[in-house]
Amino acid sequence: MANDPLHQFQIKPIIDLFNVGGMDFSFTNSSLFMVAAAGTVSAILFAASRSASLVPSRIQSIGELWYEFVANMVRQVMGSEGMKFFPFVFTVFSFVLMSNLLGMFPYFFTVTSHVVVTAALAVFIIAMVVVVGLAKHGLHFFKLFVPSGVPIAILPFISLIEVISFLSRPVSLALRLFGNMMAGHIVLKVFTGFVVSLGALGIGGIIGALFPLAMGVALTGFEFLVAFLQAFVFAILTCVYLNDALHPGH
């Protein structure tokens, strides 16, 4: 059981709440770490903005860099008009980033390694794109699926491809984050598991165990890169998709 690489993804209820129509609404370890991620982000940003000074303290610098990073991303993709969506993008980015990073602690649960969580985020984002697009452009929004200047004979087929392409957005958004986080944690667990099994084999095994140990160290660093990168990709694609709804011009 200790060596089972999938054991870390098990969901265990912490507080049993209630059952409604066969659905379990218990407070699980996943819920706990979602609360922890949101709480950590809030705590850091609260500490960063508590005593604002012209020469920023260390914690204030973190807050400012964080804000600037997301604000620049939103401005670059959507223009200054897109700053209306800055709070939303910032929330999504911070939640995903903090969930990924909290998952790097040993014995901590990685919220984003469950496809339910990432799919819920992705579907919410795409639903928002559709709602914003329809609210701003009305039925003109559906011109997204009807390219201009295409012969009428092949137009239905092109439209079908465009519709599938649009529908694949939430799927790719959800699967990418989920796949990267789960695969990374499994690989890490498998390699570090080798260290334990080889180390039990005596002196030769201990020397042999040095190789998976080195691999484990390297993979841990790589996982931190992936944790940040996936949060970044998730946030920038949120911007790109919202931009489609907001600025049909370009």
Binding site: H137, L144, F145, S148, P248
Partner: peptide, 8 residues
């Protein structure tokens, strides 16, 4: 991008 053609 798909959005580019809405104003064409």
């Amino acid at each position: 991008k798909a959005g580019d053609r809405m104003n064409d």
